[in-house]
Amino acid sequence: MKINQKIFLQFGICIILFGLIGILINNLIINLIRTGLGFNFSWLLKPASFALAEHPLPYTSSDSYTWALIIGWLNSLKVIFSSLILATFLGTLIGFARTGKNALLGLISAGYITIIRQTPLLLQLMFWYFVGFLGLKDNMFIQIKNIFNISNQGVEFSGLNFSSEFLALLMGLSIFTSAYIAEVIRGGILSVPRGQWEAFRSLGLSESKGLIRIIIPQALPAIIPGLTSQYLNLAKNSTLAIAVGYSDIYAINDTIINQTGRAIECFIILLVSFLLLNLLITNIMELINRLILKSRQYS
């Protein structure tokens, strides 16, 4: 392609883009005028006047919308980071089983991965919520000397309370994401040359020692990018919290929109929230990646 043509093409694309943005802004203004609300954030200081079942910090309905949003944020972070850890742990185990020598374990993990990836996350969340936790009776089974107590209210573990909603979301997100992480781990392991396996085996190292000392360190550079994108997916998927009634940032924004009609402001808040969260995750992962590369002077 000639330079002229290139510039012309780029110019055309710019015009189309600006046109689309113009239409969007136009719609926005029309909507704002129609609702008669105008565009401002002063309502953030007014009392939220709705209750929240789950709040890691003190909260009452007379607290402001801002405080409600912060609680939503904390709830989101809580479920995202605990799912992230659990999903990584599960995914790593299943990824190992998938690549390991044991044929039965390999088959089971392959089945797990297939089933989890072939069903919608929403369905899985509903399953964990209605079948997994609400299915339990009032104060049923395991109650070991008041230390560990499972019921339809959730799980109480030595003074810490986890609601059914939180646990259903945690299970759903972790298990769903773990199937994808398992595939990332497997891909990373397969990216290490066969000769490395033969070398550690011929030295008498056990499979697990070889995996930890030889294979995983070399697989990490291939694993980290895939892991990052799964973490980002997990963060975005956490907004399905609303389906099981967990008060995450998205659910709280939804309630606020219903109460105040401030849809545009709320969407901006949501957008910025997730942008920041995903930037945080990406940056942490990049840092980890850099640390790994630094510890490997050879590369």
């Binding site: 000769g195 490395q196 011929s202 590369s299």
Partner: peptide, 20 residues
């Protein structure tokens, strides 16, 4: 086989040193 591997060394065409 594990017992044998502790007493037998092997050298490969592609060296297969651990690069890390």
């Amino acid at each position: 086989i594990q017992k044998i591997r502790r007493r037998v060394g092997m050298v490969f065409q592609q060296f297969n040193l651990f690069p890390h």
